[in-house]
Amino acid sequence: MKEKEFNIVVEQTSQRIYRFVFKNLKSDADTKDVVQETYIKFWTKKDDLEKEKVTAWLFTTAYRTMIDFIRKRKPQFNIDEEVVAEYTDTRVDTTNMVHQYLDLLSPVFKSTILLRDIEGYNYAEIGNILNLSESQVKVYLFRARKKLKSIIELNEI
């Protein structure tokens, strides 16, 4: 993969990767770090990757980097308040409250839902990204939706 091709891939995927990671980390700076690290890894392995699998590989790497980041990070909240304020202001109706309830889920559940609903991946692709089997993905997705449903139910009453 040449430099130009690499830049094209970055332009095409960076938005999606950023969105995926940001949903989990909730911090602009942390998300940028993870995205940056992901693309650095991509740069080092760009010659070994098949073009068709690049996007899935990027999501996998971003997910793993994010999990590593969460594990390393100190147990404290470092939320970019401006982003959160902007985020909450624009979403006041119940439907969009789901985005906030989504944050209450674990990273695996959250990632499963995001990859399914936002990125539109099938079970096999999600399994590849999250290093899970297809049936596991199905179970995880079911549990994630069930948990989210119970949160919505609880908050609506």
Partner: peptide, 19 residues
Amino acid sequence: LWKKTKITDLVIDFPTQLN
């Protein structure tokens, strides 16, 4: 209730200067 668990729109933009 189940329908609400489907995430439809996610408006998070990558910082503009990087776009």
